[in-house]
Design a protein around this nucleic acid. Structure first.
Lengths: 340, 340
DNA sequence: AGGGCGTATCGAATCGATTCGAGCAATCGA
DNA sequence: TCGATTGCTCGAATCGATTCGATACGCCCT
């Protein structure tokens, strides 16, 4: 005896449609009938099959969340996005289907996009040229990016204004008297692949350095502590005049701390460090990092909101949200002092 | 013109069933026919509707992953579990539906469990008495726990042997000559709610302390750096003879570092610190934490493997996996030296 | 020539819901 | 009293796939 709507109908002595209407309330059902049906449902613990419902209604009440491949560890900012998207979706009674997708021919991504398993998609870690955006547009699936491509107007997105943020970091350091500043970017692969935040950080850095007439060097660094350490050590050796670093590479930061400690450079006494990071994370470093705090919660919730709008009406014009939070002063930046 | 199997059939001049067989290969289809169908499919970019398929086949090729509510930040160990479950599922061509679920009447959890949206569930953060386990059993949905209840034999699970691990930490400290050791547990709420790892850590601590004739104190501490700091400060003040801490509270650890630094206690010179943590995380602390490294990757992959088996055959006997990795010596434990 | 067999294909039923049009009483207004 | 309206319920079609049984055809063997 399968536990479906027909079984409930039979046991309540009504037709299937009446059960459906009793449950959805889309047509009036006599109070007496409704009670009888409800009693049977409660007794058997019946719940409608979500697949059948989705098939008939043409929507799944599920959104896809495309994250970087799980194999590579997510940064705290990325985790913040995931958490806030999941949270916002739950508040809207939407389920979240996770798709870790990196390469081109990604089975998980294809399943999500082409199988009509989701009503819409939130896309993370977008490249300047991103095939996934093209695929989603082809498939006619509503989507919102956390990040955007080279042609921002062609899609709906929310993003962080890394250009402004890194520029702010440089100005902050310049205000403290630093003249020789390095930008530690993310991995060379990402930069080569046209990762937006890296490119925008470059622009912001170059611009601010020029505006203040500073000496700026830029290096790429893989996204882990090990790389952060060796990268910083090379940087210190090659540029003895350097007194400060700005970075958007969260993952490398612990390694940078260690390289500085190992070189007997006190932070912020001898050397200043600042960057773009998640607040919780910046606060928990030791000493706490002066940084432009990324409001992942806000951004993720906004992405879901925009997605819900697009799902409701795919014809709505594209909207964008670019945020640039101010720098929170903590304990890693101080007045410039030439290195001995 | 809807893009469904009927449309493909019409355009290739065959019946719907033939298209289905051409796609699945479950019955022979003439090579010529197959090519004609494939050509139409390629031209239109047709992909079968996953909902319809799931409805007919009675399985969704999706597993549910029940995580702690997204609002509370996940620890690195928990994140490791999530990442490895997602990763293992992707390798098995399964999708993952995320359900952040905390309280009793949780809509997201109920949807996942009763809607037949998933073939099985991986359950994280299990309490000694856990209603969700009861619900899943009632619903007859295959599930695997990362963690287990008071009656371990009643379900399939993988877990970390916190009892042995904390005992190992104590023995390690005792070997180094420490006589006065504290256990920093997780939050008082969790302990009160019957959170398994906390209870087992207690047991391991009590046992090891007794075996080595040590002086041991145990405190609870909320899962964040702020609490870790104040908790450690209170501990140091109340127990001047203390020379080492063992903990399973990852989140509090940065605060503990800071409290020790603030008290001018060098680690490991003046004070030793050890615990249970994710490897990546322990390595990135400064100095790197001597810890029993939790192999989240392995455990998550195992959970998925066990779940796949249970889905294939729900009658298979319950299996369990309890792991206790060895302590990795890093730079936070050293010989005991009485505090000045 | 005809019975038997294997291959390729078709039509219809099915999964579990929703929804539209219709039917049947009972009530209302004229 | 007759027709219209209202309230409730039913049956059938539908969403988009899979799958079972039946059928049509060609071929070989006797």
């Amino acid at each position: 005896m399968p536990l479906n709507i027909g079984e409930i109908a039979k046991r309540s002595g009504v037709s299937r449609s009446t059960v459906s209407y009793a449950l959805s309330g889309k047509r009036p059902v006599a109070e007496e009938t409704r009670r009888r049906i409800q009693a049977v449902i409660d007794e058997l613990g019946y719940r409608p099959n979500a697949m059948a419902k989705a098939l008939k209604e043409g929507r799944t009440r599920t959104i896809g969340l495309v994250i970087p491949p799980a194999s590579q560890r997510l940064t705290d900012v990325q985790l913040g996005f995931v958490a806030s998207v999941v949270d916002a979706a739950a508040r809207a009674d939407l389920d979240v289907l996770l798709s870790p997708s990196g390469g081109e021919h990604d089975r998980s991504f294809e399943r999500v996009v082409t199988g009509r398993r989701v009503d819409g998609v939130v896309l993370m870690e977008i490249r300047l040229e991103d095939d996934r955006v093209t695929r989603l547009r082809q498939a006619g699936l509503p989507f919102v990016g956390i990040g955007h491509t080279r042609r921002p107007e062609e899609m709906t997105w929310v993003d962080i204004d890394y250009e402004t943020l890194i520029a702010r970091c440089v100005h902050h350091l310049a205000d403290l008297g630093h003249r020789h500043i390095a930008l530690v970017n993310r991995s060379a692969e990402l930069v080569a692949a046209g990762y937006g935040p890296s490119h925008r950080a470059q622009r912001g850095f170059t611009r601010a350095v020029a505006e203040r007439g500073l000496d700026g060097v830029e290096v790429c660094c893989a996204d882990d502590a090990q790389a952060g350490r060796s990268c910083t050590e090379r940087l210190l050796a090659a540029h003895p005049e350097l007194t400060a670093i700005a970075t958007l590479n969260e993952a490398a930061m612990p390694g940078m701390y260690r390289a500085l400690a190992h070189a007997r450079l006190a932070v912020p006494g001898d050397f200043s460090l600042t960057g773009v990071a998640a607040r919780r994370w910046a606060e928990n470093l030791h000493p706490p990092l002066t940084s432009a705090d990324i409001l992942a919660d806000e951004l993720g919730a906004h992405a879901v909101e925009l997605l819900i709008q697009r799902i409701a009406d795919p014809a709505v014009p594209h909207r964008h949200l670019l945020v640039a939070p101010p720098i929170s002063l903590r304990e890693t930046t101080g007045p410039a002092r030439p290195r001995g």
